[in-house]
Simulated assay, not measured.
Amino acid sequence: MRSILKKATLESLATSSALVLAAGLFAGTAQSAEIATDPGDYTPLPAGVNLGLLYGQYTTRDTVYADGDKVPADAGLDTTIGLARFVHFTDIGGVIVDPQIIVPFGKVDLKEPSGPLQATSESGVGDPIVGATAWVINNPDDQEWVGLSAFVSVPVGQYDEDKGPVNVGENRWKGIFQAGYVKHLTDSIALDLLAEYSIYGDNDDFLGFKREQEDAQSLQAHLRYLMSKKSHIALSYYHSFGGETTVGGLEQDDRVNTNRWLATYATFIDPTVQLQVQAGQDIDVENGFKEDTRLNFRVLKVF
């Protein structure tokens, strides 16, 4: 009987604008990249070096899009997310590898009712991510590097099944794969090119339904200007696509197709401490919430 009621509820939502708004919210919580990758991240450091990083990411979203059209409804989604990251560089058979762990935490605020969801917030610790990058090309003489990465997101973060996407945890496994290429074009200009491919397990309790998601992809380009040995600025472009979801067996038509820009300034205030600030926003969004403002902060400690 319960499964029949669930199906009837979902089918009734599918015939109204409620599920369209909810689908927009589901897509809106997807990020441009599953792993925090900044300009210069794919340049390896010597074996034995450790990095401790702390990120702060604040994002506001006030509009929802469906199939490229703005949804005529009040909407608001703010996220305040922190990331604690530890990276260790080591040499394995002559190849530099950096095993690492990332632990997200923070708060997700749904500011306005969206379909079946009421204005609400959720905070806590998210799903930790573990993995590593291996540099298959490491040529400092020519200032050229290629790294291949693999990560897994472990579903042990805080999750409330009744709040669906308004959660810090996701209640599902994720596999994230990246390939990065770095080349210094001149003594002061460097180009980073990255491709990311993400696969998703099922969330078996998403608003009382099963949520499935197709594979998603992301392309990134970072153009850095090295102002000095201590400081650089960069302009980044992100393009994310794919990742359509199915909830309760019904396709949501929420395939991501998002473009975003981000500007970066980073400087070492001490030989072992770097500060970084970033600002940006979405350029266009096909489905989901559009980012109006994104502010990122990062503190990096070398030890």
Rank of each mutant, 00 (worst) to 15 (best):
K210W: 04
D127V: 06
N167M: 12
F303V: 09
S188D: 12
A134V: 08
N167V: 07
L5V: 10
Q278R: 15
I35A: 04
G242R: 12
Y181G: 01
A234R: 09
P99M: 13
T15V: 11
V154G: 03
I102A: 01
Q31Y: 04
G208A: 08
A75H: 03
I137K: 07
D160W: 04
G242S: 09
K6N: 13
L148W: 01
F177D: 03
T264L: 11
K290F: 01
T60V: 06
A18P: 01
W135E: 04
V152M: 15
K107E: 15
N296Y: 06
P72C: 11
L223M: 14
F289N: 08
L5Q: 11
L25Y: 02
D109A: 12
Q158A: 10
D74E: 11
T245I: 04
K6Q: 13
Q281H: 07
D141W: 06
A23L: 09
H88E: 04
V156N: 03
R172Y: 06
K174F: 02
I233P: 00
E212P: 00
G248Q: 09
R224E: 10
A195I: 14
G94D: 07
I129G: 00
V168F: 09
N259L: 10
G115D: 07
L295V: 12
I137F: 07
P140Y: 07
A134H: 06
E244V: 00
T133I: 12
F206T: 03
T59Y: 00
S32W: 06
